[in-house]
Write a protein that binds this DNA or RNA. Structure first.
Lengths: 138, 138
DNA sequence: GCCCATTTGTCCGTATGTATA
DNA sequence: TTATACATACGGACAAATGGG
């Protein structure tokens, strides 16, 4: 897997694809730190902005998280608690507002689940830690 | 609402906040085109990267979409079809893979809903056009 | 149909700040 | 203290497609 600067596919997309593939293969495992931006620059011979753009893609996908002045890590899947819904409900998903991100501690690239039930205020759940489970009585 | 370069809040965050506010107030309405990057550069006296970073934030939030060589538009909320699920099911949300984005035509900043049912392949639904409606038989 | 200005996309270089190890 | 690492922000350049006249 290598980068072709002459390709019509942007370099940062090619780079993101390569890193995504390495994560998928387990070469970079969950919780593990990725090579630093400098190391990626040297390995693939691209500019820093290009590396950062590739990493930004992976962040937006929720695949990695970056800790300032430490590094970029493969996101670990947390165990997700089930929020049990009995009866009727509508469930939507969307990206959180900045306020919701702060209050719920939601990292970049993670959506929220919104559960709407008759006569109740909508519940906003961080999708990396919650799932909605429908159960019927009987 | 103006930009303070001396603030500890990054300029691009301040700019994103301002534009988000204008969208919320309806100054920029759904479907409407935002000022071009050049216009934003001149209005707020910042560099182009800064404008682009602010717009990237709003894209990641699903608030705007950009059409290459045309402009950046306030995303219009489409009517969402209800996918009715009866019986037991788990519903999760996550960002789509690049493959899923292509196949389902999902814009940036829009998650997918995944419905998992016993003995069935998971259903992957674009969250900007679908909602999951949970129902119990009876 | 053709030309041209506009607009976003991509890519590079450089500099400074600041927290971490 | 020093080196490392990411974050922010400035600058410039070229490509490619759209849209208006």
């Amino acid at each position: 897997m290598t980068i072709d600067p002459g390709s019509y596919t942007p370099v940062y997309v090619q780079l993101a694809d390569i890193i995504r593939e390495r994560i998928a293969r387990g070469q970079y495992a969950p919780g593990q730190i990725l090579p630093s931006e400098q190391q990626l620059i040297q390995e693939f011979l691209v500019a820093r902005v290009t590396v950062r753009k590739a990493l930004a893609e992976l962040k937006a996908e929720g695949l990695v998280v970056t800790k300032p002045r430490q590094g970029t890590y493969v996101r670990e899947e947390a165990d997700r608690d089930a929020v049990v819904v009995e009866g009727e409900a509508d469930v939507i998903a969307r990206m959180p507002t900045p306020d919701e991100r702060r209050k719920l501690g939601i990292p970049a690239g993670v959506p929220v689940l919104v559960v709407e039930r008759e006569g109740q205020a909508p519940a906003v759940l961080p999708a990396d830690r919650k799932i909605v489970r429908l159960r019927c009585k009987g």
